[in-house]
Design a protein around this nucleic acid. Structure first.
Length: 672
RNA sequence: GUCUCCAUAGCUCAAUUGGAUAGAGCGUCGGCCUCCGAAGCCGAAGGUUGCAGGUUCGAUUCCUGUUGGAGACGCCA
């Protein structure tokens, strides 16, 4: 039940009766930010008063004469410049909450504007291990998929794997040249990862050797420029001290700014130089690797050749590729399993391989794409550079696959909307892609780049460990579980011996708690902002965390266990009128009202594709429950009626938390 | 050089899209377990929302300028 919607509809009637078009004003009815202003507030009287040239308070009063409220609300109050404060009647509130408690779907009716969504998320490059950066796309997409489904939409989730790029050229090259057959026999995934890293290292090595000279020159040039600017600044400073005019001051300021810019340029040139030096040193200081490097000056083009052969249907390379893919996927799938992530489809880039050539031909023939400097591109309105869809060597690009994917999805699923849960740095690419989609006649499909920010290290740069390697998702998950294990075990020690967890229960519990914390930490962030990675923050277990909600849930469950409550009978007793929800303390009412806001929270998520509206709601709910828990004894309530009433609030709270967490991909535990 | 995004408490982040006194967590300080689970609760301190203008009944939110940070910008994905 979305109470706000009901109230909105009634105001729609009231405003229409006033003779105004209600549509722009209905959004101005919203939950109050402060309980002293009631439960909801309507803010339309001020702009409306302005428009009608009347006193806003009068407008409010007039609207209220047409507003039917007495079954739902206390008499509305007009406050301040013309705010209308609304408070839900206790009897109505009790009735609504009872209804939700008796409903499988917690009172949330499936939407009446059912849409078909294609949801594109996760999309890792399967040749490489997943790292911390992959968690955002994966978890945001996964929770959106669950939420949209629950709201009644049709969702096709598709994992657009990177299974066809240069990385496979690397692995194939590595396999042909560096394979340790015994290791491959024993642990194929680890060996493939090693081959990838080694080949990559050697490619980088020769590239670095090629670049090192010019990078050194660039650094020296930057140094010279900076030195020159420094003396210029010194001269200008002397000048200024002598003249002390406005002009001399300006000139000095400008020169100093330029000096700062040059200084930054120098450090970035230095950084680039150091980075290639390091790559060279890493190879040359390791005898074994150096030996492998010798005589492979052409490894860069050789790797590309392997990739190209694969793309052009070379049987030997295709056979290797078919052998590698499932091996690469075992580890990825294991992580998906741990994270409670599912896909309806997994159509990687390779799936579109044979569609690329014909697509480019069609676009050329239709005059949408044309040749430019040997390559083929689509020239788009509002963009200087064309979107290239074929390289001058004939190879296809990212954009080509994306266009082919777009067409395939249009034809296969006929979606109303396609959502791409992808890093914000690809904004421009999607702008171009969506623009190009119009040329393909897809103007009626809603295309959304659900963008998210970068995971940063403590230095404010995209996250890397000190060794320069990104934190693997596997080790992050393991760390999450082991930290949770400590806490769970510590708590368990305080229990009576006969109540303690078995080792297996302990492991399962700490897995749910640890991974829940990790997932929640990501989803509770506004997806558009970058965030700084920290183990302590990602794996925290108090405050606004999944653990807090899981804890609230476990406390409810423990009341039911301890009280020997038959939940089914409890629910029935309200349905058949034996019991009735009543509020004797303010904490009960506050909790009941919060329970009613679940639908609105999900609607907010749907509007902006932002799961953090749901986490914020769950936190608020668990918070209200904690206050209720402190102030209202359940099992030792004053009388049986109050006890039953409170038990129902507990039951609905637990179910709402469980459902809410489930929609985020997080599991609950009965005890923790 | 062009374009995009960001700037909120000591730190990390919110703020239901323009609403009333800007909220949490962590950290700091002080209270609360003979009482359904203290992974909790209650309270205190902490803010010129980067800066300067503008729009209006009302601005963290919209506009202009400015400073600082991040990112993207035809043959990578």
């Amino acid at each position: 039940m979305n109470l706000l919607k009901v109230i909105s509809r009634r105001f729609e009637t009231a405003l229409t009766a006033l003779g105004v078009d209600p549509s722009p004003y209905l959004d101005m009815i919203r939950p109050s930010q402060d309980p002293k202003f009631g439960d909801y507030q309507a803010n339309f009287a001020m702009p409306l008063g302005k428009k009608l040239g009347k006193n806003p308070r009068e407008v409010a009063a007039e609207a209220l004469t047409h507003f039917q409220f007495d079954d739902l609300l206390e008499p509305p109050e007009i406050a301040g410049p013309g705010f209308i404060n609304l408070k839900v009647k206790e009897s109505a509130l009790a009735e609504l909450v009872q209804k939700e408690a008796g409903d499988e779907r917690l009172g949330i009716e499936p939407t009446d504007v059912r849409k078909k969504y294609v949801l594109d998320y996760s999309a890792p490059n399967v040749a490489k291990p997943l790292h911390v950066g992959h968690i955002r796309s994966t978890m945001i997409g996964n929770s959106l998929s669950r939420i949209l489904r629950f709201l009644g939409h049709d969702v096709v989730s598709d994992n657009h794997l990177g299974d066809w790029g240069t990385q496979f050229g690397m692995i194939i090259y590595g396999y042909r040249n560096f394979l340790d057959a015994a290791a491959y026999e024993k642990e194929p995934v680890a060996e493939l990862a090693r081959l990838y890293r080694l080949t990559r290292q050697l490619v980088d090595y020769y590239k670095a050797k090629e670049e090192v000279g010019s990078l050194l020159q660039a650094r020296d040039a930057a140094q010279l420029a900076l030195d020159a600017q420094k003396s210029k600044c010194a001269a200008l400073k002397q000048q200024d001290e002598a003249d002390k005019t406005k002009e001399s001051k300006e000139a000095l300021k400008k020169a100093n700014k330029e000096r700062e810019r040059l200084s930054k340029e120098l450090s970035s040139a230095q950084e680039r130089y150091d980075s290639v030096q390091k790559k060279i040193a890493e190879v040359e200081q390791n005898e074994d690797v150096l030996k492998l490097a010798q005589g492979r000056e052409t490894i860069g083009v050789d790797v590309l050749a392997e990739t190209s052969k694969l793309h052009h249907g070379d049987e030997a390379n295709l056979a290797l590729w078919r052998q590698f893919i499932p091996q690469c996927m075992t580890e990825v799938d294991k992580i998906y399993n741990d994270l409670n992530v599912h896909f309806d489809l997994t159509l990687g880039e390779s799936f579109y391989n044979d569609k690329l050539g014909p697509l480019v031909e069609r676009l050329k023939n239709a005059g949408i794409a044309r040749e430019t400097e040997g390559a083929v591109g689509i020239f788009l309105d509002g963009h200087d550079a064309p979107m290239l869809i074929q390289k001058s060597d004939g190879a296809y690009l990212y954009a080509t696959t994306d266009l082919a994917t777009l067409e395939y999805r249009r034809d296969a699923f006929k979606p109303d909307a396609i959502l791409y849960v992808v890093d914000f740095r690809q904004s421009l690419h999607f702008e171009q892609l969506f623009e190009a989609a119009k040329y393909l006649g897809m103007g009626d499909v809603q295309l959304v780049h659900v963008k998210f920010g970068t995971v940063l290290g403590e230095d404010g740069k995209p996250f890397k460990t000190r060794a320069g390697k990104s934190v693997g998702l596997r080790s992050l998950l393991d760390e999450a579980c082991s930290r949770a294990y400590e806490v769970v075990k510590n708590n368990d020690m305080n229990r009576a011996a006969e109540d303690r967890f078995s080792e297996e229960e302990m492991r399962e519990t700490s897995k749910r708690v640890g991974i829940g914390a990790l997932v929640y930490a990501d989803l509770s962030q506004n997806r558009e902002s970058d965030y700084v990675f920290s183990y302590d923050k990602m794996l925290a277990m108090n405050g606004n965390t999944a653990t807090y909600m899981q804890y609230a849930y476990a406390r409810v469950r423990s009341i039911f266990t301890k009280g020997g409550v038959d939940v089914d009978d409890l629910r029935r007793s309200f349905a058949d009128g034996r019991n009735k929800l009543t509020f004797t303390k303010p904490e009960e009412r506050a909790l009941a009202f919060e329970l009613l806001q679940f639908h609105a929270a999900l609607a907010n998520v749907e509007r902006d594709f932002r799961p953090n509206f749901l986490t914020a709601y769950l936190y608020e709910l668990a918070n209200k429950y904690s206050a209720f828990f402190e102030k209202c004894s359940v099992l030792k309530a004053e009388d049986e009626k109050t006890k039953a009433s409170r038990l129902l609030l507990c039951d609905l709270t637990a179910r709402t938390i469980e459902k809410g967490l489930d929609l985020l991909g997080i599991q609950t535990v009965e005890r923790m």
